[in-house]
């Protein structure tokens, strides 16, 4: 692979990235300036689709992650000789780091690829062109309504999922490994978190969700190449989404907890 080819690849990538940002800007403007209110009914329908189709899957994933955090926390703290402090590990694992990751992964797997498949098949069946012909702003009708639906519904889904992962950690630490009593676990668990942590975690998750929805809309809206193209675009959107989810999560950690551990230890 010569230099020219690398340069070509890089330019191609940069070009695609620019288009993605421009398209995302269009969608976000549509929601931010309230033009999407015209299609509020469609946004409500999309919210319903999110709740019925995706909420349970998201919760399942976050539940498994909670179990995982629980057993790792229990065994780590047993090894350190402080089994009562398993709550410190699970509180941070669930709330700050891994549950948002699980949410992001499942968002890109379930909601993201779902949107690409749906919009992509609309594109190759010429339904998007039909919308344009009827004088409907298709970016607003297809993209902005989905983003608005995500913003309306996902905070609640996410907080419920966090609750699920808390329960799962409790189950793994107290009921399964059983090194610490229920009350002793709860004391440390609730000591090492407070409402601002939940808010930061929610902000992190919502940035991930927004990124996933925007990327998915971009890939779905610009599908080319028939039925095969839909599959290829769906697969490609996962690549971009995985990178976005991880970068957002890392940036969130750096911004919210990077210089201030927010832990009740010492001064």
């Amino acid at each position: 692979m010569g230099i020219a080819r690398i340069r070509f690849k890089f330019e191609e990538w940069l070009d695609a990235f620019g288009r993605l940002v421009k398209f995302s800007g269009e969608i976000v403007r549509g929601v931010y300036f309230g033009r999407v209110i015209t299609f509020f009914g469609e946004a409500l329908r999309q919210s319903g689709v999110l709740i019925i189709g995706s909420a349970v899957v998201l919760w399942t994933m976050m539940f498994f992650i909670g179990l995982q955090c629980g057993i790792e926390g229990a065994y780590l703290n047993r090894a350190l000789g402080s089994p009562a402090y398993a709550g410190l590990f699970t509180a941070w694992c669930d709330l700050r780091e891994v549950a948002p990751y699980a949410f992001g992964w499942m968002m890109s797997a379930k909601v993201g690829t779902g949107i690409v498949a749906e919009l992509g098949s609309m594109r190759i069946n010429d339904e998007i062109d039909a919308l344009e012909v009827m004088g409907i702003d298709s970016v607003l009708f297809l993209g902005a309504t989905r983003l608005l639906a995500a913003w309306m519904v996902l905070p609640f889904v996410y907080i419920a999922g966090i609750g699920g992962s808390f329960f799962a950690s409790y189950f793994a630490v107290v009921q399964q490994v059983a090194d610490v009593s229920s009350g002793g676990y709860a004391l440390i668990f609730w000591l090492f978190q407070n409402p601002p942590d939940l808010l930061f975690s929610l902000i992190k998750a919502m940035f991930m969700a927004t990124g996933v929805v925007l990327v998915a809309c971009y890939y779905g809206y610009h599908v080319t190449g028939g039925p095969v193209g839909v599959g290829v675009a769906t697969a490609k959107s996962m690549v971009a989404n995985i990178a976005i989810v991880h970068l957002v999560a890392m940036m969130g950690t750096v911004v919210f907890w990077g210089t201030n551990p927010r832990a009740p230890i010492g001064g």
């Binding site: 379930k110 690829t113 498949a117 992509g120 599959g231 769906t234």
Partner: peptide, 13 residues
């Protein structure tokens, strides 16, 4: 057309 996209979605989930 929709089938391939849906298959990918279900597979990854």
């Amino acid at each position: 057309a929709e089938g391939v996209g849906r298959a990918v979605n279900e597979a990854v989930v």
